[in-house]
């Protein structure tokens, strides 16, 4: 091992300090969430959140898993959505980005604009909902309804496009001269070369599906198709709306959801994605660099 130079030592000191600080700031609230999730309800209401549970209680988790079938089914739905959405979404996103990154494709800016324009103007929720429900019949197809509308995002397309543009043209040109078609260049050359960005976009798409409650909210009536986040969402956000509506209508609407359950659900929902992330991280470290290909 080479000896570290003075500048590297300075850099390391600064780097470790900054990252450690940021990590601590990020992790403290999360510790509070975990701690609150195992605190007795009345203690939270009275004393607020704390880093160490004032009065330990697993009552929240007991309640959530009091209906283990529902939670497990919701997990199943969400895993399905995430997997199918990420695979199809990532592939299509990358393919679109590939075309837009081709410098010899003279219509690339027109198409980029065609896509980008959709992020600026939207007809709003009403026509979108009418289209999805009345014409695409998404309510009848809950599994498709929870995947299809979020398959592609212009943001992701443009990020991958930008990455692919930075890959030297010489690589794909060589393949083209060898007679490779566009799709083959895309699949066999550009996809492997883009691993780092694909890993991040895969993560983004997965997180998007994992955290989505909106599509369930809009299109799913039957509890057995509820996604995990929707299952949790109904409890998480209800408190405030309940209070408001209860007084608007003058009707008593029952007990508010419990604080510790809110927290426990946040823990449950984020858990798996934290497990997926380290797995994807290897692409950031080991990802094929261009140098390696050229070499």
């Amino acid at each position: 091992m080479k000896r570290k130079s003075a500048s590297e030592k300075i850099f390391n000191v600064i780097g470790y300090t900054i990252l450690t600080l940021l990590a601590i700031i990020a992790v403290i609230p999360f510790v509070m969430i975990i701690s609150s999730s195992v605190t007795a309800e009345h203690t939270i209401l009275k004393y607020g959140y704390s880093l160490i549970p004032k009065e330990f209680s697993t009552q929240a988790y007991e309640k959530i898993f009091g209906f283990p079938d529902d939670v497990l089914r919701a997990y199943g739905v969400t895993i399905f959505n995430t997997f199918v959405g990420a695979v199809i979404g990532l592939f299509t996103t990358a393919m679109t980005a590939y075309v837009l990154s081709r410098k010899y494709f003279v219509w690339r800016n027109k198409f980029s604009f065609f896509f980008y324009f959709t992020t600026l103007f939207s007809g709003g929720i009403v026509p979108w909902y009418i289209l999805c429900v009345r014409y695409l019949n998404l309510k009848e197809m809950p599994m498709i309804a929870q995947v299809a509308p979020y398959l592609l995002s212009v943001f992701n397309i443009l990020i991958i496009k930008s990455f692919m543009q930075s890959i030297p043209d010489s690589i794909s040109e060589a393949a083209k001269i060898d007679g490779a078609g566009e799709f083959r260049i895309f699949r066999q050359l550009m996809l492997p070369l883009s691993k780092p960005v694909l890993a991040s976009i895969a993560l983004f798409i997965s997180i998007g599906y994992w955290n989505d409650w909106y599509l369930s909210f809009m299109f799913v009536d039957k509890a057995k198709y509820y996604s995990l986040q929707f299952y949790l969402y109904k409890i998480l956000n209800a408190a405030e709306a309940l209070a408001r509506i209860s007084s608007l209508s003058g009707h008593h609407v029952g007990e508010m959801p419990k604080e510790n359950i809110k927290m426990a659900m946040a823990v449950i929902a984020t858990g798996p994605i934290i497990l997926l992330y380290p797995f994807l991280q290897k692409y950031f470290v080991k990802g094929l660099t261009i140098g390696a290909v050229k070499g």
Binding site: T93, T96, F114, T118, G123, I130, P149, E182
Partner: peptide, 19 residues
């Protein structure tokens, strides 16, 4: 290769844009 994306955005973005 662009076709899927074009169809997607036409359906989910441009059609509702009439709204």
């Amino acid at each position: 290769m662009l076709l899927p994306a074009v169809i997607f955005f036409t359906i989910f973005s441009y059609l509702p844009m009439l709204g």
